[in-house]
Design a protein around this nucleic acid. Structure first.
Lengths: 252, 252
DNA sequence: GTGGTCAACTGGTAAGACCAGTTGGTGCGC
DNA sequence: GCGCACCAACTGGTCTTACCAGTTGACCAC
């Protein structure tokens, strides 16, 4: 029916301006503390209306990348001090489109720290309905494992964690998970390979859900830790490999 | 010289609109999926210019609270699915100004999960300069402990973690820390009491820094865990107390 | 039913003007 | 020379008006 067609990406002017300025700032092409050109000047330089520019600037303020002072000009902030977690997605890719390996490693580390605690809290707080849903996801995973369908397993794994973080009933974890998931989606294709060993652990996932159902927080914690450990190993190995390739052939 | 004077809070129109709409959405006064009135209508309702309104709307888009479609209207999103961690600060306070206890508990839990891993990574990666700075902070803490100055200890504790997260060299932790710190600053005064037992642990902090200097990641992990544990206990106890007071006298 | 057309929405972009703070220089009085 | 008030030239903030560009649904010919 649909020949692999995808929705056309529509980008508004304001988005384009935001992307361009954010990229410049995140790439440190503009030093923190340094003033941005005045809005009138930026309009001319970018060839857009002042309204569109201002909408983009407000988004930069929201993202913690710049600071505006009425009458005093606009200055670039140090995103490492003032930025929020949402920046991760933009930081993951260098301006040249290459994924930033240090950022990828950072994300895996954070995931490894949060996942066990999410599982632990879920075991303590999940409602019976949520446990039923967790079981359903595991059942689907079993089906996707027999004739192994890694991409489906990847989707189900995401779904499992979605349910776990919901069951953990912790809004901070929930919001952080949203950001990590969003970043994850950006490189989903590449990660299906790096995470293969993690995704294949259907049995371990079943044990995790059993621990949650048994309200055994400690065991859920351990199970989750060992599951994501596999993924971290895979990704870190891929990163090391990639780094070696890059240093071996920097001009490739 | 300064009689406790504080900088006047200057809020632009756009900020006020953003605050109002964000509050409405976060308080679920507008259901997710429900359309927002058209920009022209909102202008009239809020009594502001369309430009100012649009700047606010763009910030809401950036925050993951709404979605705009050219020609198709604007709809409210479910912030629990699409929001980023930055929302924490706004969620911490109910519209009536009361802090939301569940959110406070969530933050403490996240902190307890991240802090040990931050310490561990810092032990692995901190530069000699960074370790010197950590030692300097501990020294200041010792000075602030003798005639006990809790508020100063609070500032130094924040500074210590700032240095630790810098040493951990993990951008995801760094950005998450920024958000948590920002939220922390909002209720700093109240937390100085709840966290008193944590802040008094100058000796434990010194041990933590020693572990970092010795490159002993495991010990740093344990030390950090036991330090923040105290704080979590204090805050959770305060929350329980507060919750009892509220349920006991709901109409107070 | 299918497809085309059109009017009435929606958000997106534009240009221009003016208000409101900040900054730095200029010149007066001392 | 120093201190001060003042003013001009910035800066960002707000407003008005208009038009462009997608979306939707009603309507109608086929």
């Amino acid at each position: 029916m649909t020949f692999g067609l995808e929705p056309v990406v529509r980008s508004s002017l304001c988005d384009a301006v935001f992307d361009q300025l954010a990229a410049q700032i995140l790439a440190r092409r503009i030093e923190p503390g340094q003033p941005l050109p005045s809005e009138r000047d930026l309009c001319k330089a970018l060839g857009v209306n002042r309204g569109a520019l201002r909408e983009a600037l407000k988004r930069l303020v929201q993202a913690g990348l710049i600071e505006q002072r009425h009458g005093g000009g606009t200055v670039v902030l140090d995103y490492r001090r003032s930025g929020g977690l949402d920046l991760l997605t933009r930081l993951l890719f260098s301006p040249d489109g290459q994924p930033d390996l240090k950022v990828a490693r950072a994300i895996m580390e954070m995931r490894a720290a949060l996942a066990p605690d999410i599982a632990r809290l879920c075991a303590q707080r999940a409602t019976p309905d949520q446990i039923t849903q967790l079981r359903a996801v595991v059942q689907s995973m079993r089906e996707a494992a027999e004739p192994e369908d890694l991409e489906r397993l990847q989707g189900l794994s995401l779904e499992l964690w979605e349910q776990l973080v919901t069951g953990a009933d912790n809004i901070a974890y929930r919001l952080a998970f949203n950001t990590l998931r969003h970043t994850y989606e950006q490189i989903r294709g590449a990660l299906v390979i790096a995470l293969a060993n993690e995704l294949r652990q259907v049995h371990a996932c079943a044990q995790l859900v059993d621990a949650v159902a048994a309200r055994d927080g400690a065991r859920a914690h351990t199970c989750a830790g060992s599951i994501v450990e596999r993924g971290s190993e895979g990704v870190l190995a891929a990163i090391d490999l990639f780094a070696q390739l890059q240093s071996g052939a920097p001009k490739a």
